[in-house]
Simulated scan of single mutants.
Amino acid sequence: MRKSRTTKSWHFGVDCEIDRIYKAEELKHRNSFQKIIDENKAIMRKYEDNFASERVKYLVKKLPTCILFVGMGFATLGWWVSFIIQFALVSVEALSQRFLGWQFYKGFGEFCTLNYWISASIFMLVIFIYFWHNDETEMPEPQLIPESVPPDRKKIEDDVLTEAGKQISMVTAYKKRILEEYILVASDIHEVDKMEGVEFEHFLADVFRRKGYKVQLTPASGDDGVDLIIMKAGRKIAVQCKRYSGTVGNSAVQEVFAGKSFYDCDEAMVVTNSTLTAPAVNTARKLGVTLWERSRLIEELAQTQASIEFEDYLERYYA
């Protein structure tokens, strides 16, 4: 039930974190979206102003060429266009005056002057339009700011869950390390390593008594490979105690297994502050001999006779 409540709390916390990040990203997106639009408008206005300025410079630069074209064109084509227009109007004037009695112009000079300026204006307009449409002004494309992308809730959820998983793994590893350190300190295994053989046997006798066993010590010599006989719940176990600085060999397993029958025990066990060789472990597995190597002994000592409580250990070393 407690685990269920913890799981619900964890999911609730993750959902709250996802909502918090999503709302923050959404607000950031809204603010940046309008800001980007305004900045892009400013960039385009500046681009258009620069383009217009460059275009004017181009036309001013082409002005001498335009004047040259106008002069040459007017000297040739302009005069002929003017002459044709004048001839047509004069014909219309003569016919109108003869048959209708109308007179449009007072004299041919006025007529020539008007058509001269009309022809010149039309030709200049044509030349201007030509240069305007054949504008060679080159401007690089404006570098607009990319639009802000709306937040993706699924991606945020995946990122939060991934980060939460990393944090959980870190916390789990940290808790495991602290617990291992505590077990090592609480077991006083380093003090055990300093004991003599007989002292180690009496020490383990007290450990098994705390675990609820009845304990019988065998003679110090001629024990037939059995140092302790422990009894609990109708089970009788032969125990060989090995306080070693090196590894324990195969003989210890074989001796306690043989001593089990001698003392009429149901099981056999080897307890050591060290480790056993690979052949000894294989033999114990085949013969059904229980092994308490260094790591198992540390755990049992921390449970039965901890030299310091876990809370006191945390306060002393991690507060």
Rank of each mutant, 00 (worst) to 15 (best):
M44V: 03
M44T: 03
R45F: 02
Y47A: 04
Y47H: 13
D49V: 04
D49H: 08
D49C: 10
N50L: 11
A52D: 11
S53C: 08
S53T: 14
K57I: 07
Y58W: 15
L59W: 07
P64S: 12
C66F: 08
C66K: 14
C66A: 15
L68D: 01
F69Q: 09
F69G: 11
F69S: 06
G71A: 15
G71T: 08
M72F: 15
F74P: 03
A75V: 10
L77A: 14
G78L: 02
G78Q: 01
G78H: 01
W79G: 09
S82C: 15
I84N: 11
I85E: 07
I85F: 05
Q86N: 13
S91M: 10
L95T: 11
F99H: 14
L100M: 12
W102N: 09
W102Y: 13
W102F: 13
F104S: 07
F104N: 04
K106I: 12
G107C: 10
G107Y: 02
F111W: 09
C112R: 05
C112V: 09
C112E: 08
Y116E: 09
W117Y: 10
I118C: 06
I118Y: 01
I118T: 06
S119V: 02
A120V: 05
A120D: 00
S121T: 09
I122R: 06
M124W: 03
L125G: 11
V126D: 08
I127T: 03
I127C: 03
I129G: 08
I129W: 07
Y130Q: 06
Y130E: 07
F131R: 07
H133M: 12
D135M: 06
D135V: 01
E136T: 05
E136P: 04
T137C: 04
P140S: 00
E141S: 10
P142V: 00
Q143S: 04
Q143M: 06
L144W: 01
I145Y: 00
P146I: 00
P146K: 03
P146E: 04
P146W: 00
E147P: 04
V149N: 09
P150Q: 04
D152F: 03
R153E: 07
I156L: 04
I156N: 03
I156R: 01
E157D: 11
E157C: 05
V160W: 00
L161Q: 11
L161N: 13
L161S: 09
T162R: 10
E163A: 13
E163P: 01
A164R: 10
G165M: 01
I168H: 10
S169D: 11
M170W: 08
